[in-house]
């Protein structure tokens, strides 16, 4: 019901005289906005084009700047003349020639890398380490985790000394360096017991 009512209301709005003006207006605004959007896109495109062109130019200039002046190149040696001619043709070749004077430096870099290093992806390394850690944790949890019913080494030694042929006290009392807190606890307990029984 409600929806029907809503629909009828809309249709009545379209039929109304002032609506035509609004339609014209809205049409005009829509057209204007579309035009503006198209213009903005075009501007953007041009701006990008301009930026790219500038960058290209900058690179070219930079390349030229890096290249030694031609007379210097010619002076370096007679034999690279042929190569130089080729180099002038393509940019990539120019890079190759340019690398020539600094070849010593480059080779040294490579040598240092290969002396006692090997290349591997850091990502794999992390993953392997985490998997190894997970496996170690699994063993740890199964053998020493909750519910594994373990005791401490001190307790084991205490049992041994209490059941030996010559019976002795627990380890924390035999060896002063071990089980300091256990000894403190026992002392406290003793005091409490004495107090409770009113022995002193």
């Amino acid at each position: 019901m409600k929806r029907d009512g809503g629909a009828s209301h809309d249709s009545s709005d379209d039929d109304g005289a002032p609506d035509e003006v609004t339609f014209e207006d809205s049409k005009a605004t829509a057209l204007r906005s579309a035009r503006e959007a198209a213009q903005a896109a075009k501007r953007e495109k041009e701006r990008f084009k301009e930026w790219r062109r500038k960058r290209q130019q900058f690179f070219l200039e930079q390349k030229k700047k890096r290249l030694l002046p031609e007379d210097v190149l010619e002076e370096i040696g007679d034999f690279p003349v042929q190569k130089l001619e080729v180099s002038e043709g393509g940019d990539e070749q120019a890079v190759g020639v340019k690398a020539k004077p600094s070849a010593g430096v480059k080779r040294a870099k490579v040598r240092r890398l290969q002396a006692n290093c090997s290349v591997m992806r850091a990502k794999d390394q992390d993953e392997a380490a985490s998997r190894q850690q997970a496996a170690v944790d699994f063993i740890q949890a199964r053998l020493y985790g909750p519910g594994s019913r373990r005791m401490t080494n001190n307790q084991l030694l205490s049992i041994k000394s209490k059941r030996a042929v010559h019976k002795g006290a627990a380890v924390q009392f035999m060896n002063k360096s071990k089980g300091a807190e256990l000894r403190a606890k026992a002392e406290k307990c003793n005091k409490r017991w004495i107090h409770k029984k009113k022995l002193i």
């Binding site: 373990r150 005791m151 084991l156 030694l157 205490s158 209490k162 059941r163």
Partner: peptide, 19 residues
């Protein structure tokens, strides 16, 4: 030997009579 034993991982729990 005692110093080595105390640094080992935990052994299983034993219950012995009168200890």
């Amino acid at each position: 030997l005692l110093d080595i034993t105390t640094n080992l991982p935990a052994p299983v729990r034993q219950k012995k009579f009168a200890t």
